[in-house]
Amino acid sequence: MIDLFIIKVGGNVIDNPVLLQDFLQQFAAIPGKKILIHGGGKIATRIGDQLGIVSNYVDGRRITDAATIDLVTMVYGGLVNKQLVAQLQAAGCNAIGLTGADANIIPAVKRPVKEIDYGFVGDVRAAELHTAPLKALLEAGTTPVFAPLTHDGKGQLLNTNADTIASSLAIALSDSYQVRLIYCFEKKGVLRDPADDEAVINLINPAIYQQLLAEKVLTDGILPKLDNAFSAINNGVKEVLIGHAKDVLNNTTTQVAGTLIC
């Protein structure tokens, strides 16, 4: 029996007020223990433009220089996180906003410079997560809501991939709970044909995954989610599901929509 849902909601949902409102209402209605991890969406880019902070990307990944880490801290850890918490409170969910620095829950290391210098981007130190504060919040009936920020233990905040944070938390908490990790975004699941929203692959196991890779039917955007999903499954997480944000409440039941990873 699943007794903890760890749910990551993507930036494209954050950017869509109608979809986000529906998602938050459904999330609030999920019974029992749950954790939400959110992406940043395009809000940081929009506010950065207003402040004269240019957004730079390499292969779709944000370069986080000194000005940008200040920007994403304000936007992700402040504006977006607290808006989500306030909306969840209005929906009857007793949420608390957090970053990885709070209670030293998610230590990370600044990504080493190789071909590309990503700046103040963090790689989670998965073996060093501190779950006791999270368990205390969960057992008290509080719902943690994480912004995609970690810290290096030396006073520096780090911009960190929200999918990875979700997977890392799921793995770390799987020794205490039966965890279902759910990735919610704007698609119905992993699609065999990116142009066909109905071409959902309902089940992916390691053999099917290798076959899909060989057939080159998976888009680059879904590959990191699948890598994080299999990392979670291989490290104690009971189930991982990738699906549409509008199906989140349904996907905490046995009648799931989307793609189940096992």
Score class of each variant (00 low, 15 high):
L138Y: 06
Q83L: 13
A172T: 05
A140T: 03
L98V: 05
N12K: 15
I43G: 00
G100N: 08
P144G: 09
D193P: 03
L79W: 05
D220S: 14
E186K: 13
Y183H: 14
V179K: 06
L84H: 04
K238L: 04
V240L: 09
V54D: 10
G189F: 11
I7L: 09
G48E: 10
G60H: 09
A66K: 14
D247A: 13
A101W: 08
V18T: 12
T254S: 14
D163A: 09
A101V: 10
L213S: 06
L173I: 09
K225N: 08
A29Q: 15
R125L: 15
N159A: 11
A67N: 15
N159M: 11
L20S: 01
Q210A: 13
L212Y: 15
T164Q: 13
A127R: 13
L158Q: 12
Q211Y: 08
A132K: 14
F27I: 04
T45D: 15
L157W: 11
K135G: 00
L138P: 06
D247R: 03
L98S: 04
V72W: 06
V113N: 06
I182Y: 02
L260F: 07
P112I: 00
A86F: 03
T64W: 04
F120E: 05
R192K: 14
L203E: 15
D220V: 09
A166G: 12
Q26W: 01
H151C: 11
I7E: 05
G39Y: 03
G122E: 07
K216V: 02
T64Y: 05
G78I: 09
L84Y: 04
G189I: 10
F27N: 07
D163S: 05
I105C: 07
H38A: 11
L84C: 10
A147N: 01
K154D: 12
F120P: 03
Q156P: 00
L138S: 09
